[in-house]
Amino acid sequence: MSPWRCAAVLLLLAGTAQAQSPESLALLRKMQAATQKLSYTGTFVYQHGNRSETSRITRYAGGDVERLEVLDGVPRELIRTRDTVRCYLPDSRVLKVERRLEHAQPGRNFPALLPEQIGALSRHYDIALGETRRIGGFECQSVSLTPKDNLRYGYRLYADTRSGMLVGAVTVDPAGRPVEQFMFTQLSFGKVTPEMVKPRHAAAAWRIEDAQAAPARLPGWGLSAELPGFQKVVELKRRIGESKPVGQMVYSDGLAAVSVFIEPLGERRESARTGLAPAMGAIHIYTREVANHKVTVVGEAPAASVQRIADAVEYRQP
């Protein structure tokens, strides 16, 4: 073998090794552990397009409770516990309750990624360590998840080198352009008390919208063709706001997820308008009508992927 050819092979090998370097997977595992184990409070900015919103997030690891409070515009607050996500909307005096289906699938702590599943992400993403930079006073190491096709978004995650805590995250489209980002502008660890994750609102006499989500089969519904890499992970029935029961099927490639909502149009038949809604950062929503049902597909994937899933939804008489 000529020296040049040898060098080319070595480079190729180096490239492959870099695509799934143990260091990058180790950092992802460290980030995941930090997300679960640390107590922290901080201010972060969510930005997409030319819009940005500042929020405060507090996590009390002892009780596994997290509180998110939007600081700009209309006041809104979310509290996540082990079992529920509660969304407080004081202006409209509405409390939305979402029960978590972590144990919908026995033996699987859904939807959390298990450490051994992180390695499987390399089926659809090249995972590599990237730049180091300072964010919000923290020395951060970045890890990039670059999609191997254009069906999904890529991610640049910035972790505090010391704790592993995620300090910033940028979602990029298949062309590498940023789509949305989360960045902590201030973050401190520890010193979190249970008081700090309590809701600010008593929500007495508020309207309660309980999603009443429960695993269920949706006979006859499915996709005529799955989007490569995306598999069905759960199927359930639930309410949307104050709606009648709506079916939900969730497809995921292990990192991104796309939900298919199936809602009977009923007798009044306000027909569903087929089309794509304006993007909300990485989230796309596509609506169409199938077998007298409104089908709404929602997910953090490029518009064309969300539309492909929507176009594949079909009903077959079971």
């Binding site: 929020s55 979402e98 939807p111 969730v250 991104a256 939900s259």
Partner: peptide, 15 residues
Amino acid sequence: AHQGFSPRASFLGMA
């Protein structure tokens, strides 16, 4: 309804 099923939460927490 969708957010709770996104595995990205493993890294991003509640953000």
